[in-house]
Write a protein that binds this DNA or RNA. Sequence first.
DNA 1: GGCAGTCGTCAAGATCACGTCAAGAACCGC
DNA 2: GCGGTTCTTGACGTGATCTTGACGACTGCC
Lengths: 226, 226
Amino acid sequence: MTRVLVVDDEPQILRALRINLRARRYDVEVAGDGAAALRLAASHRPDIVVLDLGLPDMDGVQVIRGLRGWTNVPIIVLSGRAGSQDKVAALDAGADDYVTKPFGVDELLARVRAVTRRAAGAGEEVPAVEIGRRTVDLTAHAVRTADGAEVRLTPTEWHLLEILVRNPGRLVSQRQLLHDVWGPQYQSETNYLRQYMAQLRRKLEDDPSRPRHLLTEPGMGYRFQP
Amino acid sequence: MTRVLVVDDEPQILRALRINLRARRYDVEVAGDGAAALRLAASHRPDIVVLDLGLPDMDGVQVIRGLRGWTNVPIIVLSGRAGSQDKVAALDAGADDYVTKPFGVDELLARVRAVTRRAAGAGEEVPAVEIGRRTVDLTAHAVRTADGAEVRLTPTEWHLLEILVRNPGRLVSQRQLLHDVWGPQYQSETNYLRQYMAQLRRKLEDDPSRPRHLLTEPGMGYRFQP
DNA sequence: GGCAGTCGTCAAGATCACGTCAAGAACCGC
DNA sequence: GCGGTTCTTGACGTGATCTTGACGACTGCC
């Protein structure tokens, strides 16, 4: 039985979601503030968290960070405002999806199904990918040229490359790359990214000045194109 | 069976819509004023609301807000005057579409079908949509032509396109687009919209001068037609 | 038919983001 | 301590992107 933790400070929303989710055979826990949410998450280990950003005791983004410190349980965020600032902040902090109030129960249920599906399918292996004449083997932690010679990457280069390769074809935002490689406080130091992307291209691309697999999306981020 | 709530103060319109919708196998409830509309919406949970803005007891926009406080049921607005400011306010308040009186029943039925289609698919993954020969993949943040070549969009172009594509078939007001893309203080700079909509059409439409998917609704806003 | 408002288009300068180079600081194995 | 590697940080030229203004075409209204 899938366990859902619903965090909201409005009793009528808690009530509505509890009724609807229980009717769909979810095991539902509710919390009215951030502190209770973190406590219940730790004790009950939910499979999904539905989190309202507007809580009385603490910022919703803080709750996300608190959860993400020790779990990667899927988090669906509810927010009263459609403003994209909140959305970006929540997603950057580690939320999985985002629903703007007012929302239909059907829509929320659909998103719950979507993230559970995604969580179930996560963890698939990406054994080896090709970049030009080089082969990147994530499990072996090695890069080789066509004739077997090894290409040495520094730890930071590996970290960056790994994130991109694990999201083939997908755009990865600069903020996310900086957050994952350098940490939360480095989210605007884009010169680090420029520096290391250039090094990766020099080591991996056939023609570093004309990258075909490690692509820049100006103003947004980078993409690994298989 | 799809439940429709029709709200209008003119008995002959109520009668005509009830007959026509029932003939199409919709389950029809009617209300003559805003208070009755809110009451019936709460008790009967309609799948669509058709709402006349000119009600005797309260402003139609207030009715929309009252509904949007707890549900995102599709709302189609009927308005007496074309080009009225009311319609923009209604869209900004959360209406999904509008029809100007006098209207043909066929047109209204077409809109009803459009918004129900949209509501059914809401919340599910929107992996890729087609615009002419191009495919827009929101999760990968990529646009490709039929032969696999990549179409490059700037951050602002993406932002604008994303809002439209996430509301397929729905009319999005200029104010909302400007607010979401450029921020709260840019709500009257419609020349930005004209500029970027033109760029999107050049990059996405098969015939940019005759757009078939990125449509202009004069005086109101823009619509993405799948 | 004139008029006001809106839309699509073009063009320009201002601004921003990127790739690159370079140099000092920190780290590590010996 | 020392040499080499890696990481951090700053600066700069170039090109892309954003912003802004202006103009003609079109539409609906008087």
